[in-house]
Design a binder for these strands. Structure first.
Lengths: 200, 200, 200, 200
DNA sequence: AATGAATGAGTATTCATTCAT
DNA sequence: TATGAATGAATACTCATTCAT
């Protein structure tokens, strides 16, 4: 049975509340009482389910990163060729709807949080390494399959990831000014160009 | 220009102390007392020069962004052709030494701070618009001068800025894992490729 | 006598757990949850058997003092002459093994507790009066039987009790520094001397 | 100049307030806010002068023990012969006025506190060792001077200390029931008897 | 009988800010 | 100017107690 216990439900509610507060008001405003309020429960409850604030942070970061990675892999599974997969990746990162705004805001908070919370730093680094590896593997596949020219897979993966994360971040800072669709398209084009085989 | 008043000197010292504390320990640790301590003065003094903490933040953000922009423009003034200028921009952003690590850390704190402090948000947006415009102007020059192919200058400026800011950020999050020099070179190459005129 | 009910058994388990926690970690650490954990039951159960924490304290203090008194009387029953009985008392108090360390620690906690919990204060006073009376009776017997010289029985009982309780306490505070066996022997000697008939 | 700074005055006030609260209501009631209230200042002030509660405890324990020792030594300086000095010690310990009741209550709290606060444990042990040594020295002087019979000075010091501390403690627990003057006199007599030279 | 979810009062500590000297 | 004493709001965390299941 997939029935969740009350404890599991509550924990998820709390994590989601934490995530919501962080993305809407920033981590500095994410007090235990505010999280509890948003989760619709008493602040004492939070300490019933999580030993301390750090534990909530860890659980939330874990929750988000797992979801992030899972969604990415799920999307990739629908694409075959290396070029298709790269194109999907770019469009996925650049598909910046309201949900992603919330998500990205919280993500940025985690960057900063990683300076003081080692567990966040570790999770973030692992997550990026993971994504980098996924990117690099696709690039290697593309090179081996003759779709891409011979580039350094790891470095190129990093360059692509940087472009995408940078796009997201600029958009978060100033959604109005950033022509998100055009930027996405052009980033896709730039990356495709860079990877494409060139005439001798 | 006249001599700086003592008050101005003190203000600058305080701003620099603020910046130092933020970059080293994060904004959450940047208490009035800590800033005063680093600035070598009494915490009561801070309120003599700045009405409240928010005023310090505003001044510091303003100070940093002005310096950032000035340094960028100064560097650009030594380069003539559009291609050279773009190349300089990329190398300038990717010249990630110890100073830049500190700088970038503080910069990331400002991103996050912009969620709660409107003044920071405004300053950050203005700063990015400014840089985007500088980039776009160079691109337009390059197009007009026949160095670059005809791309949308604004969008491309954004794409380039995103690549560069993304690189910096990934490096800050995990300096060890990010092959910073290789990434810089390849980013430069990718952007140059993208802007270069193509054979018909 | 009939069998003990389950409720009585549970109550005793809880009391013993309370006593154990107090002697090992101190009263300040004796939370309801900790007591329940040591007693091997749910903390909600404690409130099923005891109305509140105060009730547990009262019951525990009562339990301990009853046991203390019973053991003392049992030991005394094996001795006949007043001098023997006094000697037994001293050795009993000074037989400071590991169990007594635990016991004495908890006892000291009760002293302190008696300041805030009237019931503990009353129990402690009753207990000491009881012991004082036992001592005084023996002394009176000794005087009447010609074993001891004519001293004020009540005052002397108090002096002896003070010596013994003081010894215990010093030993609890600094077990390493207190030469417990020698101290016990010498205390015994001092008291015996004091009570002994003197040559005219 | 013996002028005390405001900081020193405040610190002393706080320590005295702490001591007062502990002796009147027990350590468990000695909250930062209560101490501040008794000291007549804001609770934030306490953290201005003492880093944390532990620091207050340490300072208070140190303060009390230093005063205790100083008063003891001062009193001893007015007495010459070993027998006189011992007599003074006993009378000093047994001079149980209102001040001593407060003092002794707090002292008992420290015993219990020493289980959880290492610094208190250390201070208490050092204090007792100190007093024991003072006692032992007097006894040794008495033996050498031919006033006392040859006893083990250390052990006897411990026995005497135990008698005195035990008397105090019983009096604290039940001031009404303990005939304090008579007990003191008899304790003095018992100890004098024990130390006195005996006829061969 | 037994569990653990839920509540709310209480505790140490931090920190921006004010103000007397 | 400059110092640091003083204030009070805010914050994470603890714990006895209640109550639904």
């Amino acid at each position: 049975m997939g029935r969740k216990s009350i404890a599991e439900i509550r924990k998820e509610e709390i994590i989601e509340a934490f995530f919501k507060v962080v993305s809407e008001k920033g981590f500095s405003k994410a007090t235990i009482r505010e999280i509890a309020h948003v989760a619709g429960c008493n602040h004492g409850m939070l300490h019933h389910y999580f030993a301390n604030k750090e534990a909530i942070i860890e659980a939330a970061v874990d929750y988000v990163m797992t979801a992030y990675r899972a969604e990415l892999l799920e999307g990739l599974s629908h694409h075959e060729s290396a070029a298709d997969r790269i194109r999907f990746l770019v469009s996925w990162f650049c598909d910046l709807d309201r949900f992603n705004l919330e998500f990205s805001r919280a993500w940025m908070e985690f960057w900063v949080l990683s300076k003081t919370e080692t567990s966040v730093a570790v999770a973030l680094q692992e997550c990026y390494r993971d994504i980098r590896n996924i990117f690099a593997e696709i690039i290697r596949d593309g090179i081996n399959g003759g779709e891409f020219r011979k580039v350094d897979a790891t470095v190129t993966a990093n360059v692509i990831l940087a472009s995408l994360e940078g796009s997201t971040m600029l958009w978060v800072v100033d959604p109005e000014e950033t022509p998100v669709e055009a930027t996405g398209k052009q980033t896709e084009e730039m990356i495709a160009d860079f990877l494409a085989k060139r005439e001798a």
